[in-house]
Design a protein around this nucleic acid. Structure first.
Lengths: 252, 252
DNA sequence: CGTACACTAATTGCATGCAACGTGCACACA
DNA sequence: TGTGTGCACGTTGCATGCAATTAGTGTACG
């Protein structure tokens, strides 16, 4: 960031994701984050090659952390490595999209259930507070603040479920979701989300696991279908390829 | 460590998981597999430390692939790394178990749906053939053969869904499942499974995605509840733990 | 004109070396 | 006796070097 004296009229490149290296202990994490953000921002386009050596040069670390970072990104599904050769950014099919959203729905459903059944009451109250703040932001028509609190809301829910495995899985799925473009929060969308969160919060406070699970599932399905519809509207030819499944899975 | 290099009549140790190194290109995969199997077989006990140097010595590779293998196992949730210090095998809570089984159910449901909707007919016929062979093995009361074909059955279904992301996610979840002990196939259990597979196969052949999804979900749920019941029955003390409000202890 | 083959260059896969960080212990000191 | 400090050791984190492998290219040959 600081090396670019000439402001970027140039195409955005990976170099703007450089980070400050302070001593030992963060090279892999920093490299992973930089590459991940670059991919999610579209700076590294699908099918683009990622050479270890060039990444090393741009980010200013050695090849070892770059390698490990590439491994992690492969686990997350953001890149694909061909054995003797390098890594390329994966392309996204509409089926991937379907899968990712469905998985997220299932995981968030579980999260809500566990939060409802296990979380201590003070954390539940804190969740409700967050929810109220979101409702206010929605009323004010402030999508930026809304989005900020939204992230906190889901993070709180995840923390309340208090399960490391679930946490890890959900976070990798979340990054995959971010590849499908930024969700813009229209006024109606925010209102709808507030209602859905309302249902979740109420069930969580009542310690009603089943209801919380269903509410979270509904919430995720709304996000899925709306994003998917938007995507399909944009690329209409794919409509035929996919007979949109819209079934309701029940969770015990 | 260096004393029993040759044969291990000693308590089973990691050294029996050594592999033949043939040239270049498999060190990470082989190391990962060896460690994973050792953990799943219980040879490496929960909470046991895994030092890079000692693993290197036992498995006969350098520290670099060992490091990468440890990273992958961490992603899979089998080990946990503490920053400045090494890695330890994770312990399993019953909530982990619940989560993992539920996730698998969701993923297999999606798999079945996509297989039903997208797979070409010859593969569907091949699936039915596998299913028939499983039914025969169940009738004969041959759990070993049954288990073998069972793995093939699910692999075939996964291949038919033809989605890389789903595939990767499902396989990591499968390894997590394997930590909960081997599922022994009783006669009744095999009969039940055959019936459930019957429903899946029929829906897949009819290209009925929704029915396939529901059938797969039922199948997974049966596996979950039966395994969970068995687990709870065996370790009755955990019954209390589950009923108790909560233990805020994280994985050590 | 198309194809097989050898050769070169580019790139990864793994091994190893070194420095930093954390931990435990001994010892001095209050 | 309890506590703080320094030192030594073990372990990881990262850098770098070398060999194996693959892609690409030019050339000879059918």
């Amino acid at each position: 960031m600081e090396a670019n004296d000439e402001v970027s009229v140039e195409p955005p490149s990976l170099s703007s994701y450089r980070f400050a290296r302070g001593g030992r202990g963060n090279a892999v994490a920093d490299t992973t984050r930089a590459l991940r953000e670059a991919i999610l921002d579209g700076v590294l386009a699908p099918n683009e090659w990622l050479r270890e050596e060039s990444v090393r040069e741009v980010l200013g670390v050695s090849r070892t952390p770059v390698r490990e970072a590439l491994n992690r990104l492969e686990e997350e599904g953001l890149i694909h490595r061909t054995p003797g050769q390098g890594a390329r950014v994966t392309t996204l099919t509409i089926e991937d999209m379907l899968v990712v959203y469905n998985v997220r729905g299932s995981l968030e459903s579980l999260t809500a259930r566990m939060a409802a059944e296990n979380a201590p009451r003070p954390e539940k109250i804190a969740l409700e507070t967050l929810h109220r703040a979101m409702a206010v932001a929605a009323d004010r028509g402030d999508p930026v603040e809304f989005s900020r609190i939204n992230i906190g809301f889901h993070a709180a829910l995840t923390a309340m479920a208090d399960n490391a495995y679930l946490d890890r899985l959900l976070s990798t799925v979340e990054t995959a979701i971010r590849r499908f473009g930024t969700r813009s929060f229209s006024a109606e969308r925010m209102a709808h989300i507030v209602l859905e969160h309302e249902a979740i919060v109420s069930a969580v406070i009542d310690a009603d696991g089943a209801r919380a699970a269903q509410a979270a599932l509904d919430h995720a399905e709304f996000a899925r279908t709306s994003t998917l519809d938007r995507f399909l509207a944009r690329t209409a030819t794919l409509n035929q390829l996919l007979a949109l499944p819209r079934t309701r899975e029940k969770h015990p």
